[in-house]
């Protein structure tokens, strides 16, 4: 299967500042990718490179087999995007704003948009400039969904939404993903949403992808272990593949990566002490990877 998006050793510098470095990835049809990273980790820059808003400093990124920065209109029409700062037209009514965008597309799904604007309680008669931040965000999402894009790119789409609106948004993303032929890439600081929606996770740290892969694999490969020994542990006691370790006389807690169940027996026989395994949620994993 040809991937929808592929990047090889992508890098971007602004002046002397290197914002992205050596980023490579693939996005296949049906993938929902969640991007996690601290503020300033390079999430927005990465999304803008994929969208072709700016050329890479080195490396390349293709979308639908076209160089992103030079993609033809036919490729662009298959993409929907929600920018971090909305680009709505303040003087228009919400309905007119929808009509303007709809007029760009032949395949605009007005039935879907009508249903969603009712379900999401967007007052279409209101002027855009009078809408609340949350309402503006909902409208921006609608604008990105109407032409049923094959690739949906969202930069913190739910930051201003209440829990109910977030849930409605998530249901919509799930139903897009259930088609199997469409992909979603989104960045978010709400780790619990990423945990529900994404099958793949990219963790950006200082402009590099410090971890990328399937969420299930991530959860199964990073664990916290608790060691209780009868005798005091050596001050330099450590465990294989430890991301971090805390020692207190007879007790040690460590977070290990590349965890495999068979390691448990090795460690236990080596120590002669029982070892307890604790699996970690995505939020804990994210924090551990940023220590």
């Amino acid at each position: 299967m040809t991937p929808y998006i592929a990047a090889q050793r992508l890098a971007k510098t602004f002046g002397r500042k290197r914002v992205l470095d050596d980023v490579s990835f693939r996005v296949e049809p049906g993938d929902v990718v969640g991007i996690l990273g601290k503020n300033g980790a390079g999430k927005t820059t990465l999304l803008e490179l994929i969208l072709g808003f700016t050329p890479p400093s080195s490396g390349s990124v293709q979308i639908f087999s076209h160089e992103s920065f030079r993609m033809p209109g036919s490729a662009r029409r298959r993409i929907g995007s929600v920018p971090q700062q909305d680009e709505l037209l303040n003087p228009l009514s919400a309905l007119d704003q929808l009509r303007v965008i709809a007029s760009f597309y032949e395949n605009w799904d007005s039935e879907l948009i009508d249903n969603l604007s009712r379900q999401w309680e967007i007052d279409l008669s209101e002027r855009v400039k009078n809408l609340s931040v949350g309402q503006r965000q909902k409208l921006s999402i609608l604008l990105a969904l109407g032409h049923r894009p094959d690739v949906l790119i969202l930069d913190e789409p739910v930051a201003s939404l209440d829990p109910i609106a977030r849930r409605q948004f998530m249901e919509q993303i799930v139903s897009i993903a259930a088609d199997g032929a469409r992909s979603v890439i989104f960045s978010s600081h709400i780790v619990s949403d990423v945990e529900r929606l994404a099958n793949k996770i990219w963790i950006l740290k200082d402009g590099r992808l410090s971890w990328q892969g399937e969420l299930d694999v991530l959860k199964e490969s990073i664990v916290r272990v608790h060691v209780r020994s009868a005798a005091p542990l050596a001050p330099d006691f450590t465990l294989p593949n430890a991301l971090s370790i805390n020692r207190e006389e007879c007790h040690a807690t460590a977070v290990l990566f590349d965890w495999k169940p068979h390691i448990l027996k090795d460690v236990e026989s080596q120590l002669g002490a029982p070892v307890e395994i604790e699996s970690l949620g995505l939020e804990d994993i994210f924090l551990e990877l940023h220590r």
Partner: peptide
């Protein structure tokens, strides 16, 4: 169905099909 279960729980459908 995968879609029903996914939408109901708001979780990725691929997880269910897996």
């Amino acid at each position: 169905s995968i879609r029903d279960l996914g939408v109901k729980h708001a979780i990725n459908p691929m997880t269910i099909s897996k």
